[in-house]
Structure formats: C-alpha cells, structure tokens
Amino acid sequence: MTNPSTRPTSTNNAVSDDVVIRTENVSVYYGAFQAVRNVYLDIPKNKVVAFIGPSGCGKSTLLRCYNRLNDLIPSARVDGKITYQGIDLYDPKVDPVEVRRRIGMVFQRPNPFPKSIYENIAFGARVNGYKGDMDELVERSLRGAALWEEVKDKLKQSGLSLSGGQQQRLCIARTIAIEPEVILMDEPCSALDPISTLRVEDLMHDLKQRFTIIIVTHNMQQASRVADLTGFFNAEAGEGGSRFGYLVEYDRTEHIFNAPKEQATQDYVSGRFG
C-alpha cells in the first residue's frame, strides 16, 4: 500500500516534454472535508492525459481546479500550487475568467446553450472579444469538431435539436472556437452511445495536434485508446473515516496498463476492483 503523502516517483520519468500545467502538492478541501490529498502531477504540451480511478477519488475535483471552476463552490479551497506556464493559477492577481479563456472545458453531460447551433459557437468567441469573420470561425470550429457536414444546413436550428453525440461535439466545437491552450474533458463520453464515443475519441487524436487535453474517464479502454499518459487515482479512508482521493501512479499509458508499479493500479486496470 502506498503512503499517499509521499510523492510518486513515476511522475518524473513520465514527463520529458514541455510542461504546460504543473501540480505541486495540491490538496482540495470542501469545507473541512479533504477531497484530494497531496497530488504532484505535470501535464506536458500537446499530449492527452487521462485521469482514471474509482468514483469519489477526486479526479473530477482536481480537473476543475485547473480552470478554477471550483471557485463556483463557496466552500472549496485549494492548497499547494498549480502553475500554468509558470504562473500560479491561484495568485490573487489572476482573474479566473482569464484562466477559463485559456483552459477550456467539456462537461460530462452535453450542455449546449438554448440558442442556435451558430450562436452556441459564436457566444464564446464574442465574450472573448473575437473581432474576425464569425461565419468562418463557426465553420472552422465545427469542422474541427467533425460536426460541420452534419449541421451545415441547419446552423439556425437550436443546439438542443441535435442528438446527444452531436451536442457533445458541438460543445467541443464551441470550446475550440475560443482557441484555448488546454482542453479539460470531464467524462465527455459517459452520456454517449458507443458510436458517438468513438467519434469523440477520434476527434481527440486530431485535437492533440493543437491542444493539450486532460480527460477524466471511467472507461479504461477509452484511456488506453486515447491517452499518452495516464494517472491512476484511488480513494482511501483517512483519520475519522472520511475518504480522500490521491494519485497512486502517473506514467505512460502503456506502462499503467501493462506494467504498473503499484499493486492497486494493477488490481484496478485488470478489473479486480472499482
């Protein structure tokens, strides 16, 4: 059994490229409850990084720290240091709105706005002060999300008229329309059927040419298909019985799935628990 407060050594040898996001000794609290404990983890540029692990292990919580979406929960608090391009994301001088313009997010349930397909894309661009050719941006973003051919004749229709898989690709399109550097995906395929899931996964392979992607997933096959690096999180009961999540192991995806260093990882990826 790992001692979760020690730094997993695998972090170092997993990462050799440019680091976009560095997570140093990060713990996340909701009020007095500690949800995530002492995570060290570096996200390299233009890679897909998957967070896997059982429910309640804090992987979504950690993901939401990267674009400061946990700020929406008044009791949430982040200890430790998360840097993006060397700048502390939680520095008081940093505006969370600016963070979210550079680090976009795709959510678990497709959440298009109750607006037309066109306006769904244009919204993010407008609030980011985009001054260029909007028609061109909408087309480029929809092509980038492999949705253009299906919707090009009905851009004025409501985004909610699309199927679940199309809605999720619309949400990806509206995220890439704001040209973020990093895209966070919180179980983006959990509400989709297998065919839509494969389309979104194909899309991730294309997107990593331009973006860094962090994806939280419950689906281990998905992690092994899309991710270059995989972090395995687990939950453990701490003092007083409340469960906290921690990073067990972070390495190249093939190592995590074929030759993990930790027994817990081995048990999880081979389906023995979780």
Binding site: N67, L69, L72, V97, E98, R100, R101, R102, G104, M105, F107, R109, N111, P112, F113, P114, F123, G124, V127, N128, C171, R174, T175, I178
Partner: peptide, 15 residues
C-alpha cells in the same frame, strides 16, 4: 435553469 448552463458559460471564459 440547469447548473450545467452556468458552468458551460463560465468554462468558456464568460463573466
């Protein structure tokens, strides 16, 4: 209104 809408808008950098 669904909380997902608010998160979606915040996630795109909306104030």
């Amino acid at each position: 209104t669904p909380p997902e809408l608010r998160q979606g808008a915040y996630g795109l950098g909306a104030t």
